[in-house]
Design a protein around this nucleic acid. Structure first.
Lengths: 183, 183
DNA sequence: GTCTATAAGATGATAGAC
DNA sequence: GTCTATCATCTTATAGAC
């Protein structure tokens, strides 16, 4: 039996990734856990604090999932494939888009600190890919391709979710890799 | 002086594209227009009706903007560039992401009819690009590239908005076209 | 840690006057 | 068309008991 804090984070992440930050309330999360909303406030004084904790946890998890896959990958293409596979697992494993994809869209309506933490996730993503791709091209070229790849993966999650068809994510992601292979 | 309905649609679209469907209220829209929320209900009985009207108007505007640019474009590449330019103008002209990009992310939390109308926007987008690209490749290949292109444009809007840097959209979009040129 | 109780305000929506 | 008035409900958040 997981403790309440962990259950709370899981439930909140799941709800926000499905419907967005403003569509999720402390009451609803409390109901899901069989507690009262005042108890949710015990863990997170404000909703913003919950959001910040969720994004921090999400970032940690993302890179902790990526690291061993990267270490095991043989060659540039395999490392980029590893990166894409973390995205794919996030989508397919939860039937939800990326937490930061959702919050990134809602950015302008979020508490500034939360929006900044989300932006940091994207910067880290782009940096990781840029560093990886820089092995075989100039850094400027690598950054363009890195930005495009993160944009494609995020957009493909949103599209696949709206159209209720994961094949769409795979089509877009494979197209990404196909281009890299022909390099 | 535009009439109230048009002002209402403009204000609502602007607010939703900035902060999301659930972060926008009838009261807030009424305040922006200097009227009362009961008057907003005169135009749209439910919030869902407003959402539906917004997406319909957005779809119309998108394709009415695209058509003359398509007609004027010379060759496949120019036609795809025309498509991308409608996206770019939507982002840069309003300092906001695509209405359907925002609602697509929030899809699972929206009234089903609204989510369906948003999905239809994406299907139309993919169909237009698939038909265009089919001139020079198989339809299966064209569809993969079409899906990827819409995903990239949508994701790039979200990224550019989160990172507050339009250069990011341009990098991703140009990368899209570069690939097409080398075909 | 979790509860009850409560506050102050927002929200979608309606009835009916002007 | 726009208003006032009102509703039931939800929301974030706090104080203080157990």
């Amino acid at each position: 039996m997981t403790d309440t804090l962990e259950q709370l984070l899981d439930t909140a992440e799941s709800a926000i990734r499905l419907r967005g930050y403003h569509a999720v309330s402390f009451r609803e999360l409390a109901d899901d856990l069989g507690i009262k909303s005042a108890s949710v406030h015990y863990y997170f004084r404000q909703k913003e604090d919950l959001g910040l904790a969720l994004v921090e946890r999400y970032k940690d998890r993302f890179f902790k999932t990526l690291e061993p896959r990267e270490a095991q990958a043989d060659g540039l293409l395999a490392r980029v494939e590893a990166f894409c596979s973390v995205y794919r697992d996030a989508l397919v494993g939860s039937d939800r888009i990326c937490l930061c994809g959702m919050l990134g869209a809602e950015s302008a309506g979020l508490p500034p600190a939360l929006a900044a933490s989300v932006a940091d996730f994207f910067e880290s993503n782009v940096k990781w890919l840029t560093d990886t791709l820089s092995e075989v091209m100039t850094e400027a070229e690598a950054q363009c391709k890195a930005v495009r790849m993160v944009a494609t993966l995020q957009g493909a999650m949103m599209l696949a979710s709206s159209l209720k068809n994961y094949g769409i994510f795979d089509d877009a992601a494979e197209e990404n890799l196909r281009e890299l292979k022909s390099l």
